[in-house]
Computed example of a mutant assay.
Amino acid sequence: MYRWLAGIFRGVGASIHDWIPKSARIAANGQGLDDGSRSRPASEQDAVITADALRDAGRYAEAAEAYAAALFLMPVRNDLRVQRANMLKDAGRLKEATIVYRVAECIEPAGLARADIRLQCARALLNLQDHGEAAAFYQAVIAEAPEQELGIVAQAELNRLRLLHLSPYWL
């Protein structure tokens, strides 16, 4: 059932087991985290509160791991998956962020939430200099939300990307 996901992980030289942070696996098992200074959250909500606090403090890499731990406890919460991807992007871990965005996109039903996920993935791909993939994601946002603010923003960013390719710096 998850063969497509395993293919994504192989594409970046990792296995699914490698992708789940050790801290998330240990926290979900009820043992202390890697450094032994923290224990399993008392509730699923505590895991989210901890992740949100780390995000608000600007500790993006730690927040990404905390969201992974929360996701391990609540795998159906796609909003946590998106937050994890956002934190990975903010921490500069762009390849990982794009993978998590793509997984979230597959899970999210059609609508503005999926369009927003695609827009964030396009931005991460743009930062990775993967302009072709970024353009495809921008076009998907435009198709899904043509009259909405997300679609208008995606169109503007896609136009800017096209202008970059017309610039003499790209020749």
Rank of each mutant, 00 (worst) to 15 (best):
R10Q: 10
G11T: 08
V12G: 00
S15P: 01
H17T: 13
H17C: 01
S23M: 10
A27P: 01
A27S: 15
N29K: 07
G30Y: 13
G30E: 13
D34E: 15
D35P: 00
S37I: 07
R38F: 13
R38C: 01
A42H: 06
S43L: 10
D46R: 11
D46S: 11
A51D: 13
A51R: 05
A53P: 07
R55V: 03
D56F: 00
G58E: 09
R59C: 08
E62Y: 03
A63K: 09
A63R: 08
A64G: 07
E65R: 01
A69Q: 13
F72S: 12
L73R: 11
L73T: 13
V76S: 14
R77E: 12
R77N: 09
V82H: 07
Q83F: 10
R84C: 15
A85Y: 06
A85S: 15
M87C: 12
K89H: 12
A91P: 08
K95N: 13
I99G: 03
I99Y: 15
V100F: 08
R102A: 04
V103N: 09
A104Y: 11
E108I: 11
P109F: 09
R114L: 06
R114E: 02
D130V: 00
H131P: 00
G132Y: 01
G132N: 03
A134L: 05
A134R: 00
A136V: 00
A140F: 10
E144H: 01
E147A: 15
Q148N: 15
